[in-house]
Simulated assay, not measured.
Amino acid sequence: MTRKVIHPTGIERPYDQEELIVSKTDLKGHITYANDVFLRLSKYPEEEVIGAPHSLIRHPDMPRSVFKLLWDTIQAKKEIFAYVLNMARNGDHYWVFAHVTPTFDAKGNVTGYHSNRRKPDAAQIEKIKPLYAALLTEEKRHDNRKDGMQRGYELLLNTLKNKEVEYDEFVFSL
């Protein structure tokens, strides 16, 4: 199925601090569950979400290198916290503070992924925006998207190294 191109509107979708956005995916990142808050914020009906790639809500201003870090981490059977800019079906956006974890079966095998997201403080978003802008600029400098993502990823790792922190320490320090 071909998806229509959605353009950002620049309008932020409001939601309450207490709300919890939940989704689950299979090993390939296709959505297997989305709660009512996810559906309301994304403006997608459940029948269009289930089975779709989670990238369905990816905002074009979100660096791909951050998703590389996320996927590398959860595929290594570890949890990750990240600030993510999502885009609704109509082009509106909303920031989330995501906690993504692998889901395990009784034998310790990863069977999918689970993400809980909350509304971050505006001050935290203002602190992450310059880094994300730098990563995105680096990614766009390269004609090949995969090369751009890799260069952005290297910039992210070097930034963390220069700050002498691990990614989780950095995220929680904002």
Rank of each mutant, 00 (worst) to 15 (best):
A52Q: 13
K43W: 03
G51H: 10
E48N: 15
E48Y: 13
F38Q: 02
A52L: 07
E48W: 11
A52Y: 11
I50C: 00
P53M: 03
P60L: 00
K43P: 12
M62E: 00
K43Q: 15
P60Q: 06
E46L: 12
I50K: 01
R58A: 08
E48H: 09
S42N: 00
K43T: 14
R64W: 10
S65L: 02
E47R: 11
V49W: 07
F38S: 00
G51N: 08
S65N: 04
P63C: 12
H54A: 08
P53R: 04
H54Y: 06
M62R: 07
Y44G: 05
P45D: 15
V37E: 05
I57N: 11
G51A: 05
D61E: 13
E47N: 13
E46T: 02
M62C: 01
R40Q: 10
K43I: 03
Y44F: 03
V37N: 08
V49P: 11
S42V: 02
S55N: 15
S65F: 05
L41R: 03
G51K: 11
R64F: 15
S55I: 14
P45A: 15
S65A: 09
H54V: 13
V66P: 12
D61S: 04
L39G: 00
K43R: 14
K43C: 13
R58C: 04
R64E: 15
I57Y: 04
F38D: 06
P53D: 09
D61P: 02
E48G: 07
L41D: 07
E48T: 09
D61F: 10
V66D: 07
Y44P: 01
H59A: 08
S42T: 09
P45Q: 14
R64H: 15
R40D: 12
E48M: 15
D61M: 11
